[in-house]
């Protein structure tokens, strides 16, 4: 590039506020927030978007997304989003939920929103534990994983098996787009951003329910350094929860 001809190649997303994140060092919630904001910016949706924050580490998501927000009770975000979308069918409505919220207390709400083909977008952060409350076992906790309520590691005989939510919801006819992505390295982050944008595009096409499950780190409760947590995410977590597109009933969008 010649001198004097600067070109902005990356900026701060308009769909994020300037509030500093409260997340722990090395947590990938911040990256996921930014990817959502970048997708809203890229599609020009900020001014017609209503987000729904859930209960968990992302309970304060309304402080970070620079769009209208509602804060929902634990697990109920898909029901709240349904109420909003039925009143404002031309608005863009998304939920941002963790795995305790979505895969445990909120299973009825997510299953039925998906089954109805509710035209909303769900961003589902799976970090295999209840982060906000101090690292208890979640439905997504891996077999053998130590948490504060499985101090010797999760045992199937006692605690059952981890739930693969994306695969479970993919059996339904209502979803238009379901993908699982990971945030373990730059390449994965770029792919995650594409999937999140695609999920919002599915909503714009009124194709039905869309969800992106985002595999995320929890260095604090996993007891790992941020770098080690990223390795664990790639080598262990993503081994059980395989990334990929599980449902795509959207129209093919060029590019």
């Amino acid at each position: 590039m010649s001198a004097g001809r600067e070109r902005l190649v990356a900026g701060y997303p308009e769909s994020l506020t300037e509030q500093a994140f409260h997340y722990c060092p090395g947590c990938t919630h911040g990256i996921a927030h930014r990817l959502v904001a970048e997708a809203l910016d890229a599609l020009g949706l900020r001014e017609r978007t209503i987000g729904v924050a859930s209960v968990g580490c992302s309970v304060f998501a309304y402080n970070y997304f620079n769009c209208d927000m509602q804060q929902a009770a634990h697990g109920r975000a898909p029901a709240v989003a349904t109420g909003i979308k039925r009143v404002l069918p031309d608005a863009v409505v998304f939920t941002y939920q963790g795995d305790g919220d979505l895969a445990s207390i909120g299973t009825a709400e997510i299953v039925h929103a998906a089954a109805r083909g509710e035209n909303i977008t769900v961003i589902f952060i799976n970090n295999t534990n209840y982060g906000m409350t101090g690292g208890q076992m979640a439905p997504t906790t891996l077999i053998g994983q130590k948490t504060t309520t499985t101090p010797l590691g999760r045992v199937a005989e006692n605690n059952g098996y981890p739930i693969r939510m994306a695969e479970m919801l993919a059996t339904l006819d209502g979803p238009a787009y379901i993908a699982r992505v990971s945030l373990h390295n730059a390449q994965a982050v770029v792919q995650a951003g594409r999937s999140i944008k695609k999920a919002f595009q599915a909503q714009l096409e009124r194709a039905g329910f869309s969800m992106v499950e985002v595999l995320s780190t929890c260095p604090t409760n996993w007891g790992m350094t941020p770098v080690k947590a990223l390795e664990h995410l790639e080598k262990v977590v993503a081994e059980y929860y395989r990334v990929g597109v599980l449902v795509d009933r959207t129209k093919e969008v060029a590019g």
Binding site: A73, R76, V80, G83, I84, K85, A91, E109
Partner: peptide, 13 residues
Amino acid sequence: VSAINMVYGAAGA
């Protein structure tokens, strides 16, 4: 439970 939370969303809208 879901019905009342749908009410929450719709009232908020």
